Simulated scan of single mutants.
Amino acid sequence: MSRLTRLAAAATATVALTVLASGPTVAGEPTVTDPRVVAHFDFAAGQTPENIVVGPDGSAYVTFAFARQVARVDKNGDTRILATLPVVENPMTPVIGMAAAMGITRAHDGTLYVTYATGTSETGVWRVDPDGGAPVRIAQLPADGFPNALALDETSEARWGSPRPEAGGGTLYVADSVHGTVWSVPRQGGTPTAWATGAALQPLAPPAGLGVGANGLKFHNGAVRVSNTDRQTLLRIPVRADETAGPVETRATGLTWIDDFGFTGKGDTVLAALIMSDDVTLVRPDGTQEIVLTEQDGLSNPTSVAVRGKTVYVTSASFFKQVPDPNLLLATPKG
């Protein structure tokens, strides 16, 4: 989740409290090994990696928030810029005050979808072709909102039709951090629907929070999973047969400064990025937690996690470091 200078003072002042308030840890063997930073990015150029999705060949697709870019990073760290979102005059983005490329997800055909937060009519979901090129907006979201992470359910058919992924069917889900809403959007584009709302998704007003609620988001095992940064929670929202949202379930608490997260496999175990404490924590299905990666491994304000096969991917945006080091770290999951 992006932060800017006007939030930095408040964030820095709470770092000590953040560490003290971290969720419970469980002693045991490490669950990831061989952490290594494979790519360093240019902080001065706005290359602050915000979100990540991994392709079949192991390449990572990331958003560079403040550069407004979508990039492909291979396992050797070679980086190629695929697209740049359009310049916005006088952005008025809530929370951060500037235009930012936020969440990213990928369809089976390689098409990328990105959220763009601007505080203007350009705010919404944008499509990027597999080979790059000019992004195209497919859905407009509220200018006074903050669209953050998003995920694609290509199996969806009840609402939009076209059940086959190759036919372009499916539903995009978007976490709005300011409105405390999960929006649904047809993959082919159109009018968003406020799919899930409620107190569990809402932010907390300062000084209790930063005004950042629903943040990270994944579609997993028939449900939309959401992190709430201000409330330090990990949530599950079942997708009913008619595509409507079931009741919000709290699956873990005490996740101070949780940003985005990724599932370790087909089960419900999660690796979550804790942006201000420079940690990645493993969250088990029963809610217990264990820190598995730290600043000593190379993390620098981690923002998102993805897992594909035998590789864990972690992006770090380094928003609050005196000597910033935005990077991509890889590690190997154990077991």
Rank of each mutant, 00 (worst) to 15 (best):
E243C: 10
E243L: 10
A245V: 04
G246A: 01
G246H: 02
P247Y: 04
P247C: 08
P247G: 04
P247M: 08
V248W: 05
E249C: 12
E249W: 03
T250N: 02
R251V: 05
R251D: 00
R251P: 00
R251W: 00
A252M: 05
A252W: 01
T253C: 08
T253D: 12
T253A: 11
G254N: 15
G254D: 15
G254F: 14
G254L: 15
G254R: 15
G254I: 15
G254E: 13
G254V: 15
L255N: 06
L255Y: 03
T256W: 08
T256P: 02
W257K: 10
W257T: 14
W257S: 15
I258Q: 11
I258W: 10
I258G: 12
I258N: 13
I258P: 13
D259W: 10
D260I: 08
D260W: 03
D260P: 05
F261R: 14
G262L: 14
T264Q: 07
T264R: 08
G265T: 14
G265L: 15
K266Y: 12
K266A: 15
G267D: 14
D268M: 09
D268Y: 07
D268E: 13
T269Y: 13
T269E: 14
V270G: 07
V270F: 10
V270L: 11
V270A: 13
L271T: 11
L271A: 14
L274T: 01
L274W: 00
L274F: 00
I275Q: 14
I275D: 14
I275L: 13
I275C: 13
M276T: 12
M276P: 01
S277V: 12
S277Q: 11
S277I: 08
D278Y: 06
D278A: 12
D279N: 13
D279R: 11
D279Q: 14
V280P: 06
V280A: 09
V280S: 09
V280W: 07
T281E: 12
T281A: 15
T281Y: 05
V283F: 08
V283I: 13
V283S: 09
P285T: 09
P285C: 09
D286H: 09
D286T: 09
D286P: 12
G287V: 03
G287C: 08
G287A: 07
Q289R: 06
E290I: 01
E290H: 10
I291D: 04
V292A: 03
V292K: 01
L293I: 03
L293S: 03
L293M: 05
L293D: 03
T294C: 06
E295D: 05
E295F: 01
Q296A: 11
Q296K: 07
Q296M: 02
D297C: 04
G298S: 03
G298C: 02
L299D: 05
L299Y: 09
L299N: 04
S300E: 06
S300Y: 03
S300Q: 10
S300A: 13
S300I: 00
N301D: 05
N301T: 00
N301H: 05
N301F: 03
P302M: 06
P302A: 04
T303G: 06
T303D: 06
S304R: 00
S304Y: 04
V305C: 07
V305H: 02
V305N: 02
V305P: 01
V305Y: 02
A306I: 00
A306S: 09
R308H: 10
R308V: 07
G309S: 10
G309W: 02
K310R: 09
K310E: 07
K310S: 03
K310C: 00
K310L: 01
T311G: 03
